[in-house]
């Protein structure tokens, strides 16, 4: 896929999504703007920009797009795991889940290192709770 065209289409898609969504709210007129008017105007400007980007991409050399989903999935999965486990058993469990899942995205994996990092971060979490009064629900 051509990166230049894909980004232009992505921007166009965003403009159309927000523009279409604006019509769900009152538009009003310029002197008495409704909540939909401003997002509609910005969406129109964004669509114009994206059309120019599409036109420009026709004259540019195609640049292949490279997106590797493995590591971003592991990083985001670790963060989601942190939230879900924290809700279920508390932030201590969440920290362990975060460290052990996201470490899979690294080049090397060590249980011992992950355990040490988890313990250090749990200590930091205790410090944040006791010193700053942050109510993070450790367990």
């Amino acid at each position: 896929m051509n990166r230049n065209l894909v980004r232009a289409l992505l921007i166009a898609g965003l403009a159309l999504s927000f523009g279409a969504g604006s019509f769900r709210y009152s538009i009003g007129d310029l002197s008495d703007a409704g909540p939909g008017l401003f997002p509609l105007m910005i969406s129109a400007l964004l669509l114009a920009v994206s059309l120019m980007m599409i036109a420009r991409s026709r004259y540019e050399s195609a640049v292949p797009i490279e997106i590797g989903m493995k590591r971003i999935s592991l990083v985001l999965g670790g963060l989601i795991g942190f939230v879900l486990v924290s809700k279920a058993v508390g932030v201590i469990g969440g920290i362990v889940a975060l460290v052990f899942v996201t470490a899979l995205a690294g080049r090397s994996y060590s249980w011992r290192r992950n355990l040490q990092v988890s313990i250090a971060l749990i200590a930091v979490a205790f410090a944040l709770q006791s010193l700053l009064g942050l109510n993070i629900g450790l367990y």
Binding site: V75, G78, L79, F82, I95, L98, V99, T102, A103, A105, G106, R107, S108, S110, R113, N114, Q116, V117, A120, L121, V124
Partner: peptide, 11 residues
């Protein structure tokens, strides 16, 4: 090492 640092940053 980055392997230690990046989970900490994410935390």
């Amino acid at each position: 090492p980055y392997g230690v640092l990046f989970p900490s940053i994410l935390f």
